[in-house]
Computed example of a mutant assay.
Amino acid sequence: MSLPIYFAGCSNPGSEKEPEKEAVHEKSDIVTLTPEQHKLSEITLGDIELKELSGTTKVNGMLDLPPQSLVSISTPLEGIVKSTDMLQGKRVTKGALVAVMQNPEFIQMQQDYLDYKSQLQFLKQELDRQEELAKENVNSKKALQKARSEYQSVNARLLGQRSKLSLLNISFPALEKGQIQKTFNLYAPMSGYVTQVNTNIGAFASTTDVLFKIADTEHLHAELTVFEKDVPKLKLGQKVRFVLANEEKERIATVYLIGREISKERTVQIHCHLDREDTQLLPGMYLKAYVESGMNKVEALPDAAIVEFEGKKFVFIDQPALKDSKDYRYRMMEVKTGVAENGYTQVSFAEPISEAKVVVKGAYDLLSKVKNTGEEGEGH
């Protein structure tokens, strides 16, 4: 490779000869920076990585929650919100109080329960008496049937009222002691984060209103949208590499379910489980993903490490400093590029470079120095 780059200063004819030590020229593919220039360039070194860039399917998607990890809280009995301290983003644990409700009907329900319970005690005594009389053939069968019917009817009402009050989280031991509650409480059915608050103190809430939503973000999954033509490439257990819209780091998931219905847009939904859970992630985050359909790994570098010069692709390799010099040296090497995905590009070198460090940040600054030096060389 030959580049028109010169790093030694040009001298005019007739000028005094420079000392031989300073007249030594660097190779045309070596870029030298002084410590000051190096600091301004903010150069970062990295390694050539092995990446699965071939045999992949590029898809889009978003983080989502399975139905069992998202709960909507409504009131089983309409009423007024007396108090709540729920805020979006608040962490709640299972069984935590989310709201206190009030409704005069709730008081009447408790009174009805106590009334049914009292009636049932009387009817049970009457039923026992009629059964004793029937054994002695003193009463008629009609009287016994009537006593049994009345007992069963009130018992059914009592059980029904008990079920209704159970939905309102009533304390039956306290109620049966005559302690009637004026309000009823709503509790969190699971632990998670509050994602929606649709009410406020003093607001009326019907049984169809969703007052709060709680999401358990410990089990988020990646929901991918795959075009019909790419579905045959997908299999259960395949690895998925994805990057969130607000991040640069790569995450890994595994294909868990493949949808069996094609949408109007000719796409299929793919359900993936995250290999590493992260409670800081939120449902609804958009992502770009690559589904691995092959296991061949290739040498790759971040896109920022590769520059283009005179129609060819190059990278800069860190070089040892010269003896008694504090300057930084980088060798400009031509590379062949291949598949480019997710911020990385496949590279191959004409010659082995062992475990040399590559400039992964600041390569364009080095290229600028190459261009400027080349222009100076042509000008002389």
Rank of each mutant, 00 (worst) to 15 (best):
K141I: 09
K297C: 00
N137A: 12
R157D: 05
L63W: 11
D230C: 04
Q181K: 05
T225H: 05
F349G: 08
T225D: 12
G61L: 04
L366C: 06
K124H: 14
P352Y: 06
E261F: 09
L77Y: 08
L144A: 01
N169A: 03
K21P: 14
M285F: 07
T267Q: 11
R241F: 14
G14F: 02
L287K: 00
L234M: 08
E78T: 09
A134M: 12
E132T: 12
G379N: 15
D278C: 05
M295A: 15
A222F: 01
D115Q: 14
G160W: 02
S368F: 10
Q130P: 14
E26P: 11
K117C: 06
K94C: 11
S153F: 11
S28Q: 12
L274N: 03
V81R: 11
Q102I: 15
G178H: 01
I180S: 00
M190Q: 04
T254A: 04
A245V: 00
T208M: 11
G160L: 09
A147F: 03
L257D: 13
E376P: 14
V255M: 04
A305P: 09
Q179V: 15
L87R: 11
E16N: 12
E261T: 14
H221L: 08
V231Y: 02
K326I: 11
E20Y: 10
Y330A: 02
R276C: 13
E334D: 10
I252P: 09
T84Y: 07
E376L: 15
S69K: 05
N155Q: 10
E132F: 01
L45D: 07
V59H: 10
D209S: 08
K124I: 13
Y113D: 06
T208A: 00
Q110N: 06
S83M: 07
V255R: 07
A174K: 12
E310L: 12
E351Y: 03
R148T: 09
I43D: 09
P104I: 11
I180A: 04
V335Q: 07
I270Y: 07
